[in-house]
Design a binder for these strands. Structure first.
Length: 233
DNA sequence: GCATTAACCACAG
DNA sequence: CTGTGGTTAATGC
């Protein structure tokens, strides 16, 4: 869990937390980023960025965890994904309307670097390799959303909840035992169901010995069964 | 018809 | 914020 500890350096060129994208910058470009970035630490629960507001910076997560979500109808939200250290977050607003199209809220104490959008765009326009790597990342993120769209619309609740838990296992923590960073309500927002249904499913999974929930920890006991539930939808 | 799925509501802790 | 149970609407045998 050491990657969630804030090891952010004061300057970009000796920072261990930055996105891999920045390894494609030359010394001058890195210096430019360094001179035009702001480092901010957020406490758990604080809003890092708000859907609809003007996008003045792109950001890079140094430590912690946060939820990236769409604010939908009547105050209801859909969690798109959990962002973790070294994730770079731009968003479609960069070349569209310079607005944020999703909100991000810290789940743990989270350290973030804000890089000026104009500086980022300038480097994108001059450094081809950097631009290509950025597009790779961006495309992968888009495909992830396509994938989620399919499973959220074509699977039944058990399959969706299994996918949410497997997502935390495979993409976020990489170990079967991890802290419960999401409330039942947030878990329901991640798997597109009502809060009551999420509670009920977690109870069922627990009763069947697939998972164990204690205090603020969740342990996945039977990954294979979860994967099976995910498959049959 | 009858069963299943899943949301909504109310209420309790 | 969680947990439960009852009700209801839609969909599928």
């Amino acid at each position: 869990m050491s990657e969630y500890f804030d090891k952010t350096s004061k300057h970009c060129y000796d920072c261990q937390c930055m996105s891999h994208l920045f390894s494609f910058l030359n010394k001058d470009e890195l210096q430019l980023v360094d001179a035009n970035k702001i480092h901010v630490r957020f406490k758990a629960g604080e809003t890092i960025k708000k859907q609809g507001t003007f996008m003045s910076h792109v950001l890079s997560i140094n430590s912690g965890l946060a939820k990236l979500y769409l604010e939908g109808i009547e105050g209801r939200s859909a969690i798109l994904r959990i962002v973790k250290p070294s994730n770079f977050i731009g968003g479609p607003g960069i070349y569209h309307d310079q607005r944020h199209h999703f909100s991000i809220t810290a789940l743990l104490d989270t350290s973030v670097c804000f890089i000026e959008l104009q500086v980022f765009k300038k480097i994108l326009s001059t450094n081809n390799q950097f631009a290509e790597e950025f597009l790779k990342d961006f495309s992968r993120d888009v495909l992830t959303v396509y994938n989620r769209l399919i499973y959220l619309t074509q699977k039944q609740m058990p399959g969706r909840m299994a996918d949410a838990l497997l997502y935390l296992l495979d993409d976020i923590f990489n170990q079967p035992r991890f802290p419960m960073i999401l409330s039942r309500f947030e878990l329901s927002e991640l798997s597109a169901m009502s809060r009551e249904s999420a509670v009920k499913l977690l109870r069922d999974f627990q009763k069947d010995g697939l998972i164990r929930i204690s205090d603020h920890e969740l342990e996945i006991l039977d990954v294979e069964s979860l994967r099976k539930i995910s498959q049959v939808g």
